[in-house]
């Protein structure tokens, strides 16, 4: 009976009797209990991620078609990107996924000191990723690889400049889209870090950390596909 009490802390909306008030995320009035609230939160994120798959799927479809049509020019353009930096960034992002997974684990176990440290590590790794990305972008700018603004294809004779420009358009479009997702995720982690430090989460209520984790892992998965498709086109 004790466990049942833990799961269903109160049928009265908003009321959580005989609980320490400091560690409670208030139960929203439309839900019967925290269990339902948590189920709803994770399901909502999964549904959102389904739309995200299609969101990235649109430009990837276009990329697939032009990659097939202009494969020589796309390969030549892809070779301009720095594989070491791309691979490093992949490892950095995978590392941030690891810290997130560990943070969710720690939250489930109620180790909130670890949670705040791991979330902080995630934020640091995310910022490092964006920093390396910015470094790459500045190299691209110096080399004149910015489509529509500053673009040349003189680095390799015989490459059709318009097609190489198309490759770089997709490179920037997809990586910027990804970077925007990273920024949203970083903002979410910053808020959650504050809330963790203020003791808003508990063993029973840590769904926001889990939900943000799902989002972050998805952003990681997107990069896992973008890295070989953009950086590693070879003949």
């Amino acid at each position: 009976m004790l466990s049942a009490n833990l799961v269903k802390p109160g049928v009265l909306p908003g009321a959580l009797p005989h609980e320490a008030p400091a560690t409670q995320e208030p139960l929203a009035s439309q839900f019967a209990d925290l269990y339902q609230q948590r189920e709803v939160a994770t399901l909502g994120m999964w549904v959102f991620l389904a739309t995200e798959i299609l969101f990235f799927g649109g430009p990837l479809t276009a990329y697939a078609i032009y990659g097939g049509r202009f494969s020589d020019d796309f390969v030549a353009a892809s070779e301009r990107l720095s594989v070491p930096l791309g691979a490093l960034n992949t490892v950095v992002l995978l590392g941030s996924s690891l810290t997130v997974a560990l943070a969710v684990r720690a939250a489930r176990l109620g180790q909130f000191r670890s949670v705040s440290l791991l979330v902080l590590a995630t934020i640091v790794l995310g910022v490092v990723f964006l920093g390396i990305k910015a470094l790459e972008y500045s190299h691209d700018y110096a080399e004149g690889l910015i489509p529509g603004i500053r673009f040349t294809a003189e680095w390799r004779p015989g490459v059709e400049a318009r097609h190489a420009e198309l490759f770089f358009f997709f490179y920037f479009f997809l990586t910027l889209l990804h970077a925007v997702h990273m920024l949203v995720g970083l903002a979410a982690w910053a808020v959650l870090l504050l809330r963790t430090l203020r003791g808003r989460f508990s063993v029973r209520w840590n769904a926001p950390i889990e939900v943000a984790g799902l989002y972050w892992h998805f952003v990681d998965v997107v990069w896992v596909f973008l890295f070989p498709l953009l950086y590693l086109l070879r003949h």
């Binding site: 299609l54 969101f55 649109g58 430009p59 603004i149 420009e165 358009f169 479009f173 889209l177």
Partner: peptide
């Protein structure tokens, strides 16, 4: 999401001339 991103591509093409 597909129309959202397609309209983004359209706007990019119109703005940047790619």
């Amino acid at each position: 999401p597909v129309i959202t991103v397609t309209l983004l591509l359209l706007a990019a093409e119109r703005l940047l001339g790619i």
